[in-house]
Design a protein around this nucleic acid. Structure first.
Lengths: 258, 258
DNA sequence: TTGTACGCGTTATCAT
DNA sequence: ATGATAACGCGTACAA
């Protein structure tokens, strides 16, 4: 018997009533007499009673826990996302358990298994860079544990994903510039082989087209995403006059087969 | 009955043995016959059985969970500390639940209560900037939940703390420079009213003394910790020749009354 | 060597 | 209006 925590039994014995009476009184069950209810609640407050979430979890098969796996805890991108998740989870009575894959495939598998073992009610994660094989998510799907990928995703017809919609973002920002009165809108792109680069350029062109602006290859610069090369590209464009900008938008994509 | 998870009962029924036999077989208890043990373990693997931590937690009054409260999840200082905690916790079979106080006193109290309610096995936290009153830690101490403060601390004779030992760090780095052959060692300090400033200056002077170097007021510059003012202070010192450096060391301080 | 029974804290069902 | 009991999943002291 743990004396560390007070339980229904503690209160029941102190008041010479049954545990079920205490349980109901605390939840304001109408069947319980007002006098008994008052006494029980008073003692509960005094003793700082809080229901044991383990017991409730066992009974209801629900932990109110969301598992979060990120490749890296320190990078601003991820820590800010964790911050958002924590905030939302909290607001809805959940708490989050953080795990880090360190961009490792093996570690990612381990984290995943650990979270399932914990009986988390759901998992939100970003794939590790190393991960090429996606079969370890079979276990998660079979367990029917809700799963959401963000940023780096896979198996997107089976799993809900949250990703930056690069094309839409580039399209919108291009239009935004146009609507703000600008007519020579440039774009600094990343490495040509990346998807995000292609998507953004596509959105950029789409935006231009929607605004009836011609596409001018001189206004499309490339960089390797390093600060130095971005600076160079900027200066190259500045020589042509108008400074370019690029924002990103966020889109939630639901699985096509739910 | 949850069909989501397989339990000892599931295996017991399938094999026509009792739950306790299964329980023991899985833990390689010597009392169980090798044949039965093999069968049980085989089926357990096949069914992907994992013990329910809620049940074990309830039984042992232990959750293997460490609660972590930080004022801010996004700042590098905190996210890197969380990363370290996660890593260590993990290595020792614990998982961590993250909560953020957003530098708010009320939120901090709330986080603390939530973690206690969760029955975490211990709490690691950094005080919110707003927090001036420290009585809300009474509850934690009474519950005998292990508590550790880091960086910003209070009630340090009752609670274990982990803080940067500014004085020792400044002393050591000063000696380090001396031992590396340098004889004119400067120091850039922060705002004069801060404790950390005083401590570092103290250590700096102590280091100089230990090396039999005279303290030269010209080699002590001040800044307000902003990049701009630190730059200015650096340039001021550079005019005098030797570029200064300042590192920090880490020390673990145990409560004086354990 | 294996099974039975109890307890951990809670809720829900069924009696009283 | 209140109490006894079962069930959630597990470990263990005790019985066989």
């Amino acid at each position: 018997m743990s004396k560390r925590h007070v339980s229904l039994k503690t209160i029941a014995q102190a008041l010479n009533v049954s545990m079920s009476t205490v349980s109901r009184a605390l939840r304001n069950h109408p069947d319980i007499g007002p006098e008994v209810t008052r006494k029980v609640q008073e003692l509960a407050r005094e003793l700082q009673y809080t229901p044991n979430p383990l017991a409730i979890g066992l009974l209801k098969d629900k932990t109110n826990t969301i598992g979060v796996i990120v490749p890296d805890l320190v990078t601003y991108f991820f820590s800010s996302i964790i911050s958002g998740i924590e905030s939302m989870a909290n607001e809805h009575g959940y708490h989050i358990v953080i795990r880090c894959s360190y961009e490792s495939y093996d570690k990612e598998k381990e984290c995943l298994q650990d979270l399932l073992r914990l009986r988390v009610d759901g998992i939100i994660m970003c794939l590790a860079q190393e991960t090429q094989d996606y079969t370890h998510f079979d276990t998660v799907l079979e367990s029917e544990t809700p799963l959401v990928f963000f940023d780096r995703v896979c198996r997107s017809n089976e799993v809900a994903t949250v990703v930056v919609d690069n094309q839409e973002a580039a399209r919108r920002i291009t239009r935004h510039f146009f609507e703000s009165g600008y007519r020579r809108i440039a774009h600094i792109a990343g490495p040509a082989q990346l998807n995000i680069t292609r998507e953004r350029i596509e959105g950029y062109k789409q935006g231009l087209a929607e605004c009836n602006l011609p596409f001018d290859a001189n206004l499309l610069a490339y960089c390797d995403l390093s600060i130095a090369s971005a600076t160079a590209a900027t200066q190259q464009l500045l020589a042509l006059a108008t400074p370019p900008m690029l924002f990103s938008g966020l889109m939630i994509r639901r699985p096509s087969r739910p």
